[in-house]
């Protein structure tokens, strides 16, 4: 059993937090994990991606080969489409519908949505709205993780444990906020 995940977004949107939570959750299940990420200049409002690989067996490459990602999880709608060449046949694309517009030639959201709808397996979710509605306005990235939780190949309880591990330093309230966000995202996808 192997899951290859591309996490996508814009520098500062919290994809590394998602990566850390999945990483801890994988170890919780005694799985091998490799996670590569972008640091430095590209972080300044630029496009960022993280390759996350989880497997029962040792993992060779730190990078996912093209056409192999089981899941593209993007906290920004346009960024979800940037990594399509990585997507495997029947892979899932889960994207936040709220655009991060910091460039002059950002395409219209209708155009992005139209393209998104051509994908076989996809979930389009307003994670910010959902985060607000479950009283965790800062946790839209964790809503996204919840929305994609069916396709990560890990138990939901492991993901919860991962969240606890990531946020425990910040206190019980922050952990609870994020668990609520995780569950809200999951419920959204299960109802589709």
């Amino acid at each position: 059993m192997k899951t290859d995940i591309i996490l996508a977004g814009v520098g500062g949107q919290g994809i590394l937090t998602i990566a850390a939570a999945i990483g801890f959750a994988s170890l919780h299940e005694n799985k091998y994990v490799k996670q590569s990420e972008v640091h430095g200049m590209s972080q300044r409002g630029g496009e960022v991606q993280s390759h996350l690989r989880i497997s029962d067996k040792p993992i060779a490459s730190d990078l996912i080969p093209l056409g192999n990602a089981d899941l593209i999880l993007s906290v920004e709608p346009m960024e979800a489409l940037r990594y399509l060449p990585y997507l495997t046949e029947n892979g899932w694309v889960v994207a936040n519908s709220v655009p991060f517009e910091n460039i002059p030639d950002y395409p219209s959201i209708e155009r992005i949505k139209k393209e998104f709808d051509t994908l076989t397996n996809s979930i389009w979710i307003d994670a910010e709205e959902l985060a607000k509605s479950c009283h965790s306005p800062k946790s839209s990235n964790i809503v996204m993780l919840g929305a994609a939780s069916e396709y990560i190949g890990l138990g939901f309880d492991s993901l919860k444990a991962g969240i606890e591990q990531v946020f425990s330093r910040k206190g019980k309230n922050v952990v609870d906020d994020n668990i609520r966000a995780l569950e809200a995202g999951r419920q959204f996808s299960l109802k589709l």
Binding site: V10, G11, M41, S42, Q43, R44, G45, G46, E47, P65, L66, G67, N68, A69, M78, E79, L81, R82, Y83, L84, P85, Y86, L87, T88, E89, G91, N102, I103, D105, Y106, P107, R111, E115, L119
Partner: peptide
């Protein structure tokens, strides 16, 4: 042989780093 997923749509704009 290598695989690849769908092409990147032509309208996807690059997002260079910028000053905060």
């Amino acid at each position: 042989e290598t695989k690849t997923g769908p092409d990147v749509p032509a309208f996807i704009a690059s997002r260079p780093p910028s000053l905060c």
